[in-house]
Design a protein around this nucleic acid. Structure first.
Lengths: 222, 222
DNA sequence: TAGCTATTACAACGGTCATTGTAATTTTCG
DNA sequence: CGAAAATTACAATGACCGTTGTAATAGCTA
């Protein structure tokens, strides 16, 4: 138990890092597809093209692997989402269209990173069995981090006079934008479990952005 | 497979019905707590105070039991929710307070029927492995039925001149009320997986109702 | 009370799975 | 190249679990 792996501090040898990432990739796929309990170590090892013994040498046990996969995947997706937000808000001029384009790609992340969100869907019912620190760190590096980035971009847009947002209402505005777009999509698709027609998806996001601008737009807001 | 059980058409003998309901109750608890895969037949039988063989005689196999439990529980909760809506809208006079009271108890159903919603949380990641007809029937007798009842009450309130709701916008208004209150609570509590402080719960519901009235209230709406 | 039926206790089968040990083999690095 | 480390194949262990059969028992109904 105290040998190595766990949090993976110092994989020095060359191939180790590749093996490790292959395992993480395979585990993300299988855990997301099958769920924690159904996912067998052998299936993950096969998906990663690795012996199951190597997997144990890297991550200790099944729970350690799940922990590593969840956090690794969360960091990756959060990074991608933050880059996406930065890219869209960089050229933020017209709230009407720019906010819609941004939200479309942001919420579309559910389909851009299907394995990650399948993985996240698995932890919801498993929450009471998962160590609290894992849950907390997931929220911190995942949803919370993305939300924080969004909040800062919205604040910047507010300072630029493009939205009716200031330090006072920024938190609520951020929650509202997420709720009106992502929350609406999530509710309609049973938390992403059921497929949603693209037109329906776009309609929900569009209506959500319209509602958001109705509250925080410069024309009718304030 | 063709012997009996399955959909349970004719349990005539006296004690059988009690056994059946004891099994459904125990299965709801264990399935909700452990999830489909982890939940063992023996654990369910023990929780129900019944031999595992009796369980098989009633429901055929594990999947048949899960199917029966999910639909039975959904019908029960939907009935309770519809009664709740009828009771509140019966004495619907002042949108400000009446709508808040209603939403508080409605969304509070997550805590009033914890086993049911734990069960529902389990089917989300399991969706792709569940027969489509089970999923469809669940949505029909569950969320869809409640949503339909709410829509009719909102329409009635609109006809009574208490809300700015008519046949044109009733569907959207219904979705909005659910999203602003239940969706907000759901998002904040990670789909109900993480506990939410009562004050936070009430605050979210209150803000949700306020926002709803901002859009569909008679004073500032229209 | 007699007979039918549901229920039970018990055992067993076949399967899956997490985990570990070991020895051989491959890979990496000095 | 040669040593050290990582990886592999292989097997085994111990546990859990869904499901079924069976014979005994308890409960209901007529």
């Amino acid at each position: 138990m105290t040998k190595q792996g766990e949090t993976g501090q110092k994989p020095l040898r060359k191939g180790m890092l590749e093996k490790r990432q292959a395992i993480l990739k395979g585990a993300r796929a299988v855990f997301g597809r099958e769920g924690y309990t159904r996912a067998s170590i052998d299936a993950i090892a096969a998906e990663a093209g690795v012996s199951s013994r190597t997997l144990y040498n890297h991550f200790g046990d099944k729970e350690g692997l799940f922990r590593a996969v969840l956090l690794d995947s969360s960091v990756a997706v959060t990074t991608a989402q933050q880059e996406l937000l930065a890219r869209h808000f960089h050229k933020f001029r017209d709230p009407e269209t720019d906010l819609y384009d941004m939200a479309l790609e942001w919420i579309g992340g559910i389909e851009t990173h299907p394995e990650h969100f399948a993985l996240v869907r698995q932890i919801i019912p498993e929450a009471s069995r998962l160590p609290v620190d894992v849950l907390e760190e997931w929220r911190r590096v995942g949803p919370k981090a993305t939300q924080q980035a969004l909040k800062e971009h919205l604040l910047a847009a507010g300072r630029a006079g493009l939205l009716a947002i200031d330090e006072e209402n920024a938190d609520r505005a951020t929650r509202h934008l997420a709720l009106f777009t992502g929350g609406a999509v999530s509710a309609e698709s049973a938390q992403g479990a059921l497929p949603l027609a693209p037109e329906e998806f776009e309609r929900l996001v569009r209506e959500g952005v319209e509602l958001f601008l109705q509250l925080y737009g410069k024309s009718s807001g304030e």
